[in-house]
């Protein structure tokens, strides 16, 4: 199933686009060699599609589906899945349990188009029973989770895809500066050389979507945004963001509208943004303490 990619010539090189992970994906490539740009775009879309096909909760019979329908039996996993679980575990520990990929079932209860209803407390409590990363038992080759539990890589899947693509492109073409942008999660692995102007990146303002308010200049590194720009529920004046607190089962209270963080790679930036969202009111203090560059909209 070939992704339909599109390559456009620009004054400074090429821009390539395709869709994956339910978001617009874009590649900015600083080369005037069309063949190379085409190869890079193809590689990026193939890799994004592969990761989506493997770990998306919306696709049946993929690796994630097998894991979630093993009825408590242990499932064989490959090195990539093992690395993902290892990373999720470290995030769980670093966030004192606030980031928990075992909250898949709970996440599915919340629908985030504007007028959907809030799940009833009984259903939420019942789902909360199945949320506990401690129950996830895995080795380098095997994974076993309780029958009721659903894992969900939604929190790290897109950032992981961005970093994988950025890293593969940087190793194959070390001298070509490229910017990978999957729906706002951005990585720029090869330093944009001093003599060219840095990449311009617009950050969405939650109030006025699709109108970049602030533009950030990036020569190297990554940037990720977490926030309820599109997915939120509004009920008698209270807006509920799409970040669910796995301990309470409810969206985080007083969470900022959106948090954008700059980091060495997309996974780190994305996880810090998500953790900041989970802090609700203390998002700013949390990120200041981490001494990272960030932008928060309330």
């Amino acid at each position: 199933m070939r992704m339909n990619t599109q390559l456009k010539q620009q004054t400074w090189g090429f821009s390539g686009s395709f869709r994956a992970m339910a978001s617009p994906c874009e590649l900015l490539i600083a080369t005037d060699d069309k063949q190379v740009a085409m190869q890079m775009l193809q590689l990026a879309s193939d890799e994004a599609q592969r990761i989506e096909a493997k770990y998306s909760r919306f696709i049946s019979a993929n690796v994630l589906w097998q894991i979630n329908h093993a009825q408590g039996k242990s499932v064989a996993i490959d090195a990539e899945t093992y690395q993902l679980l290892l990373f999720a575990q470290q995030c769980y520990q670093l966030s004192d349990g606030l980031f928990d990929i075992s909250a898949g079932k709970l996440m599915r209860l919340w629908r985030f188009d504007k007028n959907s209803a809030i799940p009833t407390p009984e259903i939420l409590n019942q789902a909360l029973l199945a949320v506990d990363f401690e129950q996830v038992k895995f080795t380098t080759t095997e994974l076993q989770i309780p029958t009721e539990m659903y894992l969900d890589f939604g929190g790290i899947g897109k950032e992981y895809a961005v970093d994988r693509v950025a890293n593969t492109l940087a190793q194959r073409w070390p001298d070509i500066s490229v910017l990978v942008n999957f729906g706002g999660d951005i990585a720029c692995p090869v330093k944009r050389v001093a003599e060219c102007s840095p990449w311009q990146v617009g950050i969405e303002d939650p109030q006025r979507l699709d109108q970049a308010l602030v533009s950030l200049q990036i020569r190297q590194g990554a940037l990720a945004t977490s926030g309820d720009t599109r997915r939120y529920i509004e009920l008698d004046g209270v807006r509920y963001g799409h970040i669910i607190n796995p301990k309470t089962g409810y969206p985080v209270v007083h969470a900022p509208r959106s948090v954008t963080v700059l980091g060495p790679n997309c996974l780190t930036a994305g996880m810090l943004a998500t953790m900041a969202m989970l802090q609700g009111e203390q998002a700013e203090d949390f990120l200041t303490e981490q001494q990272v560059q960030f932008k928060i909209y309330r």
């Binding site: 090195a79 990539e80 690395q83 993902l84 290892l86 990373f87 470290q90 995030c91 670093l94 966030s95 004192d96 606030l98 992981y160 970093d163 994988r164 890293n167 593969t168 190793q171 301990k247 980091g263 060495p264 790679n265 996974l267 780190t268 996880m271 810090l272 953790m275 989970l278 802090q279 203390q282 949390f286 303490e289 981490q290 001494q291 990272v292």
Partner: peptide, 26 residues
């Protein structure tokens, strides 16, 4: 519900993600 104030979460994450992103040097 406070996150325990760990100073270098960012650094720990960076290290953890490296293992994930380029598991083997091609």
């Amino acid at each position: 519900m406070q996150l325990t104030h760990k100073k270098n979460i960012a650094q720990a994450l960076a290290i953890a993600s490296c293992g994930l992103v380029n598991p083997v040097a091609e």
